[in-house]
């Protein structure tokens, strides 16, 4: 798995565009040429609250092209509500790019990209990169209902094959996206997934049954987002290349250690997690 080599910085940006692909979901594009140039698929940013809310908000980077970076998020509390209130021309400061991102080395030829709800936001950049390297990319996309399957046309336009599932059956197959993935034919070489924790656990189980390696972009509450507070940990195999260095059992430590989702992650190999 990759580590984040690129030093992050605070970028002062200006909002370029704001749309609502669905009620309560906002796509916010902003002018950030330097950030667009260095962002890798699967990385995230911390949006410094523009209007007095406390603690920055971690958001997956949805688009990064030319001079524009965009985030796609659902409004779920006061901080995201504040960000959703931004309009074209407003200022927004972001600390980015953060986290390791997906590991797309090894030339995968057939990749399943699996999104649970707003987890779709971290998956456009890897899908674009894979398609650019001529890989086949299938998007498995689950949400509560049809209206929340935002941006699926965008993924189709990029060249992804689209397979959807909804909890209420209002679009695609009724049920969870992990069930859809379990029936993937032919079996993909690699799975990249992002979504809520129960969906990622189910995806990891489906991939284990299929015998396909999976990279999961985890969801966890962040405070600092830069590795300073150790608030966002996940248990991981101490022998993982991503594990923070920690004494083993011979030195009073453990075979399982807590890695920071924001620093060592947010992307981890499913088989190395001990959650």
């Amino acid at each position: 798995m990759l580590t984040n080599q690129m030093p992050a910085a605070v970028h002062a940006t200006t909002v370029l565009d704001r749309t609502e692909p669905a009620p309560g979901i906002v796509l916010l594009g902003f002018y950030a040429p330097e950030l667009a140039a260095v962002t890798r698929p699967g990385q995230f940013l911390m949006a410094i609250p523009p209007g007095g809310e406390r603690t920055a908000t971690a958001l997956g980077i949805y688009e990064a092209q030319d001079r524009r970076v965009a985030v796609l998020f659902s409004v779920c509390g006061p901080r995201t509500r504040e960000l959703a209130g931004l309009r074209a021309g407003d200022r927004l400061e972001v600390t980015a790019p953060l986290g390791n991102g997906f590991d797309l080395s090894g030339s995968p030829r057939d990749v399943a990209v699996v999104a649970g709800g707003i987890g779709i936001a971290s998956l456009l950049l890897p899908a674009q990169a894979l398609i650019a390297s001529s890989a086949r990319v299938r998007l498995y996309y689950g949400a509560r209902s049809a209206a929340l399957l935002v941006e699926r046309d965008r993924f189709a336009a990029e060249g992804c094959e689209i397979h959807c599932a909804t909890d209420d059956g209002s679009y695609g197959r009724r049920g969870f996206v992990s069930g859809l993935l379990a029936g993937a034919e032919p079996r993909p070489d690699l799975v990249l997934a992002c979504g809520p924790t129960p969906m990622l656990r189910a995806t990891a189980a489906a991939c284990s049954a299929l015998g396909v390696p999976a990279q999961l972009s985890l969801e966890e509450t962040f405070a600092c987002g830069v590795g300073g507070c150790w608030g966002c940990v996940v248990p991981i195999d101490r022998n993982s290349a991503q594990a923070p260095r920690f004494p083993g059992p011979d030195k009073g430590g453990s075979d399982t250690v807590n890695a920071r989702v924001c620093k060592e992650g947010p992307v981890f190999w499913a088989h190395e997690l001990r959650w």
């Binding site: 509390g77 405070a223 507070c229 608030g231 966002c232 260095r245 430590g253 453990s254």
Partner: peptide
């Protein structure tokens, strides 16, 4: 060495936050 507490370790609260890291250190 201390592995620290299990997640969740953070909760945002009005005008503040709760943390329970649990002295994770090597």
């Amino acid at each position: 060495p201390r592995l620290g507490n299990r997640a969740p370790r953070l909760v945002a609260t009005p005008s503040g936050m709760l943390n329970a890291i649990g002295l994770q250190n090597p």
